[in-house]
Design a protein around this nucleic acid. Structure first.
Lengths: 232, 232
DNA sequence: TACATTTGTTATGTAGTACATAAGTACTAT
DNA sequence: ATAGTACTTATGTACTACATAACAAATGTA
């Protein structure tokens, strides 16, 4: 067994520092006291005193919560619990160069899973206007044709539009922040392969076909990706 | 137009503090210099001097990156860039009591989307052993029967097992950290409704049926949830 | 020479003080 | 009563000091 196995199996023992502890305590405190967005928090000095640490440490912990959007601070008025944006924290660590290869593949699979599963939301919320716009994108692709950069841009536009049509804002933002990851993966491909079902085919299904047909169509559109997964 | 519209439309102008700026600068720095996991960072004092800020500010920024798992610090050895766990940062802000209602619904939809789309991965990776275990869970449910707490626990076990069977670790962890959210949503339900397709039905499809049948089965299993979405 | 122990150096971790700044609050004058 | 002023207070930033851990070098011993 190589050294790598040990590392990934055990992970490093990280000595908890005071800010770590204070961060956790603060989270617990906010929960226990069932703070709601808008409520005011005690001031830094009081917290430091209660916890028996320096103001410095408290500030580090607060800085973290602030970064996550859990609290906002204003001079003199003190701190207020806020409603964090769940995805912004996610975005911060999502860099294809930093995250590991297995995670990269996981994320790719999740995308495929989502797009095949999207059919129901799509048929629930799609509007004729949306479908028209999607068609325009698909047509544009056919016109501009093969060139690589255009192809990728259009690919993004098409699939992005589909996510947007679901009316699920979180999903949409999730997809948009995954784009760099896919861009990275596509750049690794040497020869771009085109699926059996084209974007225009998908649009036509959306116009006249059923949910099941769309799912099947999307599946075939993405099929070569799934084939690649099989061999991994 | 009510005050609420203004608030949600504009959002608060947040004055950027020095730690905010330093955090961003550090990220840029890491990217530009194309640091790889394991590489050593400059020491705090050097950073503070280069950036023209106090060590305090640098430490706050570093504390944030440390929380996200982007850097690890060890006494004397300095800091090294680490491979962040993309989901742990996510987990920190995922509290059903804090996140807004619309986001809650979005997440719920994402779960449904995922589970319907899972079929392909599932058929790609499932083993007879997995299917047996899943069957056991489904049988247990039938035996223990109706009691509420058991029912929920079993529901979690069943769907959790399915995620596990996909072999996608990220997906699995994602699901497990969403559990509190669903627990919260279920607790809001007054009368639990059972889908047309039971867990045992799904197991049988997994044994003898096709991917398409499974997708259809899962869809009907979750159908009452989709119905609820329609009326929102 | 090889190994164990001690000492020293250095970078991070924590505490504490000081002051700037912004945002309320109370008070005053027209 | 309103406008303007002075005061108060909590956060933001800087600086100093020292504890602690980890590595490095030097010293001592077999």
């Amino acid at each position: 067994m190589g050294n790598n196995d040990i590392k990934s199996g055990l992970g490093r023992i990280v000595q908890q520092t005071m800010p770590d502890i204070v961060e956790i305590r603060l989270r617990e405190y906010l929960k226990e006291q069932s703070f709601k967005p808008g409520d005011a928090l005690p001031k830094e000095m009081d917290l430091a005193e209660s916890l028996g640490v320096s103001r410095n440490v408290v500030r580090e912990a607060l800085s973290r919560l602030r970064m996550l959007g859990m609290v906002e601070t204003r001079k003199k008025r003190g701190m207020v619990l806020a409603r964090p944006d769940i995805l912004s924290s996610f975005e911060r660590v999502l860099d294809p160069l930093i995250i590991g290869e297995s995670t990269l593949r996981d994320i790719f699979e999740i995308r495929l899973t989502l797009e095949v599963g999207l059919a129901d939301l799509l048929y629930l919320r799609k509007t004729p206007k949306d479908v028209d716009e999607l068609e325009q994108i698909a047509i544009n692709q056919k016109v501009t044709g093969g060139r690589q950069t255009f192809r990728i841009k259009n690919e993004i536009a098409f699939h992005g539009k589909i996510y947007q049509m679901t009316g699920n804002e979180t999903l949409q933002r999730f997809q948009s922040m995954l784009l760099p990851v896919f861009g990275y993966l596509v750049s690794l491909e040497k020869v771009p392969i085109i699926g059996k079902v084209s974007h225009l085919d998908l649009v036509n299904i959306l116009k006249n076909g059923t949910k099941e047909e769309f799912r099947q169509g999307m599946l075939e559109h993405l099929e070569h990706h799934f084939r690649k997964l099989k061999s991994m």
